[in-house]
Design a protein around this nucleic acid. Structure first.
Lengths: 346, 346
DNA sequence: GTGAAAGCGCTAACAT
DNA sequence: ATGTTAGCGCTTTCAC
């Protein structure tokens, strides 16, 4: 009835005994290290197969590596992050490394807890997506473990970065809307509380890109920014605020697709139709945006490529920690869809 | 220029020396174990704070626990899973445990790899969401580590389960549609390849619930099931298949909200409007369904409650592995929205 | 090329 | 109540 006492895990000692070699030999074969003859390799491999041995990563970590990569995502609900993750896991698929994710890390405190936990678990490398920690903390973390930061501008001598050119991405949207005849184009951004960080955060860069593009088109007077958050709720609240303006914007540029979802929700609630009454654009080109019912004009960052580049850089850094850091910037492209069209009245 | 060689990590020995006590004492304080006087506790706590010591989980795992919980989610893209995760993390928030997620585990092979990896990393407990592994494998896993399975029916003597009453959930949808006058109600399910598993999988139970409810309403002849997958793509393909029927259904019940998204996409493509031309219902009541532009009738499983219950059971099982297993079944509720309405022609 | 032995940071028997 | 000591499973010198 009761499950039998679980048999002790097969260890490297069992394998060594079974193959009639030393544990050292087994360890060498396991790691593909130098100093094992083909004959020995084979004997060990066979013993491993026969015994169904799997190395205990936790124990390996005490001396060497844990073969574990930690990925920190700020928000699992944002459908853009899975794209990045795909690029990452794809890269690690044929390696001995295992990718593990931290759960919802909204906010500095949760982020710190998760990243610390990853380091405490001996992870060999960390991949941080749009982290909100202070620059100093990021540097400190990167000093403790190989690290790559995705979606945060600003270069470091300790960690590599992979970013989308958010300035260019925002400009793509503004250019597109202006070319359609829009002038009063509003933007909904993620509120940046800490001024020291704003230079580096993608949300701030998108807002800045929006501002610059508006000025470039001679629309400095039309600049209209609402600061909420990069969530559906944030989009909803932001749109409502914009709708309450005496002069309502003819187009709304949301800093992320999830934000645009909230915007669409608010517009629908107000009985406004898209794009007839108002144009809406997002950022990230998620699968949501492609839905015909939504058909949201959006900016494609190429999440998969971002993730792939980050994974490659991390692997390189794990191999050589002294390697000079790299900064990869990927160019976004515009995906025009039905949610944007010329304004109703000239 | 180059970052200074990282200082060796602070260990329990450093703390012991600093506090002028034994390492055992520090260990005891760390674990809140018996045998440490208040005075000693304080000394140690202070030393820990002064040195900024954090226990090395990987090393702890070699003797005791790693204080790590592994969560396996089959698909990060399904917006229902974050709900479950919220319930889980909430429960572990004030414990010493850290929750870590496996990345996209679609398919038996990926699932096996991730669960094995979690065990190899000495995780103290596993939470599997809608796993597709064979029953035998699940039993084996549960023999190796405390485990709770979410969203898979069938009881085990080794692991606890938390499920939604999928039969009832499917009936809620059918009842609702029938009460609106629909008769030809089609269902899109996730294809179950392995017959031995079909009894336990939620998708199969929903399909069965649909069948039973249809029969209960005397609509056995109208039963119409298309098997694709629980993804947006699956919904799109399923709906296209249904639209090609000589007698087109007046309502489509998708086994999951993501599936319904694909359905809406296909209907929109075909120039059909919802609910005027055709009614659509989903399952999971995700935030997507609540979007006014979508306004999808759906079944609420209470993901948060499911996650919370699972976390509680897992913690209990970690505490007492011999405890008899529990099976928790939660009742779903219907969330009627605009996507369902009486059929056009009576 | 191979293996003996030390030790990673921590916990848990076992003294005291 | 406190400290001593022996490992956990693996990697890594360092002999041979």
């Amino acid at each position: 009835m009761a499950p039998p006492a679980q048999p002790r895990r097969v260890t490297i000692v069992d394998v060594a005994r079974h193959a009639q070699v030393s544990t050292t030999a087994v360890s060498k074969v396991l790691r593909g290290a130098y100093g094992a003859s083909p004959r020995m390799r084979e004997k060990v491999q066979q013993a491993i197969a026969e015994l169904g041995y799997r190395p205990y990563a936790a124990a390996r970590g005490l001396r060497g590596q844990t073969y574990t990569i930690g990925v920190m995502l700020p928000d699992i609900r944002n459908p853009f992050f899975p794209e990045i993750l795909d690029g990452v896991t794809e890269w690690f698929e044929n390696t001995d490394y295992q990718v593990l994710l931290g759960p919802g890390c909204n906010g500095e405190e949760a982020e710190a807890r998760v990243t610390d936990a990853m380091i405490d678990r001996g992870m060999d490398g960390l991949l941080l997506v749009a982290p909100v920690s202070s620059r100093a903390r990021l540097e400190r973390l990167a000093g403790a473990v190989p690290m790559v930061v995705i979606g945060r501008h600003g270069q470091s001598t300790r960690y590599d970065t992979v970013v989308d050119d958010d300035l260019a991405g925002a400009a793509l949207v503004v250019d597109h809307l202006v070319s359609q005849g829009h002038r009063h184009i509003a933007h909904i951004e993620h509120l940046e509380t800490d001024p020291t960080r704003s230079e580096e955060m993608p949300n701030a860069r998108r807002a800045e890109g929006y501002r610059r593009a508006m000025r470039a088109h001679g629309l400095a007077d039309e600049i209209d920014i609402v600061s909420t958050s990069y969530t559906q709720e944030g989009g909803y609240l932001g749109a409502r605020e914009l709708l309450a303006r005496t002069r309502r914007p003819t187009a709304m540029f949301a800093g992320a697709d999830v934000v645009a979802m909230g915007v669409l929700d608010a517009l629908s609630e107000a009985g406004l139709s898209v794009p007839d009454d108002i144009a809406v654009a997002g950022y990230d080109n998620t699968t949501l945006a492609a839905l015909r019912q939504i058909s949201l004009t959006s900016v494609d960052q190429g999440g998969r490529a971002i993730g792939g580049n980050a994974a490659r850089l991390l692997l390189e850094r794990i191999t050589d920690r002294a390697k000079p850091t790299a900064q990869v910037t990927l160019s976004p492209t515009l995906m025009p869809r039905n949610s944007t069209a010329p304004p109703a009245e000239g």
